[in-house]
Write a protein that binds this DNA or RNA. Structure first.
Lengths: 211, 211
DNA sequence: GTCTATACGATGATAGAC
DNA sequence: GTCTATCATCGTATAGAC
């Protein structure tokens, strides 16, 4: 065993490469080379390339989801104690802010967030499912909270709006501070914190848009 | 020459397969098999797989962008004649509505819209650039219109909001009516028209969110 | 000009011997 | 755990038939 064991090194490299080049464009040869591991070690430790992806996502998403779940739960119980419905803005923040904090917690986390941001619109069924199966419970929990917060909005419409929010988020998470529209006569990209603050304002306004 | 010529058949099949399985997951062998063409014909007609993608995108995006450009221009000149700034909602509609109409114009167009929806968050640099280079001018034109419509919003923030809008749109375009969160105890997906109407309301509200 | 058949070199994931 | 072999498949190039 070296400083970090083979399995962890593979996970770290996979996270980075899957995020930056995409799952299918990442070859196990390059990956194991970068991770200073043998080509066959991926199969040994994880079983297959897809199982590696699953492991990469699980490693970070399960803890993150626990935090998000707890925060959302706090908002809901706090509101119930005060015998009022939870505020939609609070619920959104409880979901988004931990994601952002997590994202800034380590370099690998940033890659990871980009990875899951993309997973939502992944063409490949299996890859998308790999992410969705782990993410659905927290989406559902957030949705239930929002139902209480905004009972005047029909459930189907609220769900659609939640999807819009996920679209916005996943796009921002993918791009990071890299502005896709960057051109000479375009304004400079916003500072990261400001961008995230603006995103929250954007999705809050959209969520509560007039019917 | 058969009913449709080889080049068109290849374009049609590529559009469908790139959209549904992704660019890298689509092999030229399966593609040419489906298009009832020879493996080498892609290289003969287009030069390479990437050039084929470029051709697929150009074929539909150039005409669509012309329509969008014209509509946006109409809104702007109309506003100028009445010596008032254009309305942000009108500009957004001028951009979004032709996209939706186009999307419903043919089955292939639906695949195409999904394809470009995904292109915005494509990990592969070359694929993303292939789309962005064709889409940037119309983004920029829309941005200029929005600048006039909402002069009170700082340019950098407005640009960020335009990015959020593109994120929402691309997500919806990718998914189509397929609800990613579909689960037993979730509400039914909205009808297509209602979904699009809701999307417009969402992005309009987000765009004009309080600073 | 179009299309076909076939070959090439590279790379894919995986499995079995060590 | 590693090394190496294996075999499928990839995108592309080319030579020649219609």
């Amino acid at each position: 065993m070296t400083q970090t064991d083979t399995k962890t090194r593979i996970l770290d490299c996979a996270e980075q490469m899957f995020a930056r080049a995409g799952f299918h464009s990442t070859s196990l040869r390059k990956l194991t080379q970068l991770a200073d591991a043998n080509l066959a070690s991926v199969n040994y430790h994880f079983g297959s390339k897809e199982a590696l992806l699953q492991a990469v996502i699980e490693r970070r998403l399960l803890p993150l989801n626990k935090i998000r779940h707890k925060k959302i739960e706090e908002i809901i119980t706090q509101a119930r104690e005060q015998e009022r419905p939870p505020a939609a803005a609070d619920l959104l923040q409880a979901f988004v802010v931990p994601t952002l904090e997590f994202r800034n917690s380590s370099p690998g986390a940033q890659d990871f967030i980009a990875l899951i941001g993309r997973s939502l619109s992944e063409p490949d069924e299996t890859v998308r499912h790999c992410f969705l199966s782990l993410a659905l419970p927290i989406f559902q929990f957030l949705f239930e909270g929002l139902r209480q917060a905004l009972p005047q909005i029909p459930a189907a419409i609220l769900l659609a709006r939640l999807q819009f929010i996920m679209g916005t988020m996943s796009h921002v998470m993918c791009m990071g501070n890299l502005n896709a529209f960057q051109k000479p006569d375009f304004p400079e990209a916003l500072e990261q914190n400001v961008l995230m603050d603006q995103m929250l304002k954007f999705i809050q306004a959209g969520l509560e848009a007039p019917l």
